[in-house]
């Protein structure tokens, strides 16, 4: 599935048509959701399928249909610059070199797994009466973080609504 992901990502970079790119990124989200299921993370997979493949695709399609017709996408061939390719290759190599010192995927004895995770796994079902540990951690142990996330969604929604101007227009109409 990782190969499918890589292929979709290359397709997104390669294609010029915006609608095709949006559809491909939706497919990308769907494959990621499948990958999360394969890694036994159904909560994340459900979020990815609903938000990534569903909602954001619809919103991006709406945004594309807004921009189309006002300005044509410039189709200009940029010359290949050797210096740019060199920098990209060096940065990529440095990043891959950095991953070599990370612990192997899923290893149970890493610091990230040993800090608070065992306590959550042991205590959460009894302390919160919720069999789903993900929900228990998200809503109870990490309640502050989740409140922050909701406030982020709130402010993002308000911001988009003001940017698109439908509220402002209505307020002006009501004022006159």
């Amino acid at each position: 599935m990782l190969f499918f992901l890589a292929g979709t990502a290359i397709g997104i970079v390669w294609l010029k048509s915006l609608i095709a790119v949006v559809m491909l990124s939706s497919i990308y989200s769907l494959i990621s959701a499948g990958l999360f299921i394969a890694m036994n993370a159904p909560d994340v997979a459900l979020t990815e399928a609903a938000v990534g493949a569903g909602a954001s695709t619809v919103l991006l399609l709406a945004a594309v249909s807004l921009t189309r017709g006002r300005r044509r996408v410039e189709q200009r061939r940029t010359p290949v610059r050797p210096a740019a390719i060199f920098i990209v290759l060096v940065t990529g190599a440095a990043l891959i070199y950095g991953t070599l010192s990370l612990p192997p995927f899923g290893a149970p004895d890493t610091p990230g797994q040993l800090h608070v995770a065992p306590r959550y796994l042991a205590e959460a079902p009894a302390a919160t009466a919720s069999p789903n540990v993900v929900t228990a951690v998200l809503a109870s142990y990490r309640g502050f973080d989740t409140l922050g996330e909701v406030v982020v969604i709130f402010s993002a929604g308000i911001g988009v609504l003001f940017l698109l101007g439908s509220w402002r227009r209505r307020l002006r109409e009501e004022g006159e």
Binding site: P42, D43, A45, L46, T47, A50, V51, G54, A55, S130, P131, N132, V134, T135, A136, L138, A139, E149
Partner: peptide, 14 residues
């Protein structure tokens, strides 16, 4: 969402 995968974020989007 407490028992099975899910919760407010996913449900809201659906």
């Amino acid at each position: 969402g407490e028992v099975s995968p899910g919760g407010g974020f996913q449900a809201g989007v659906i």
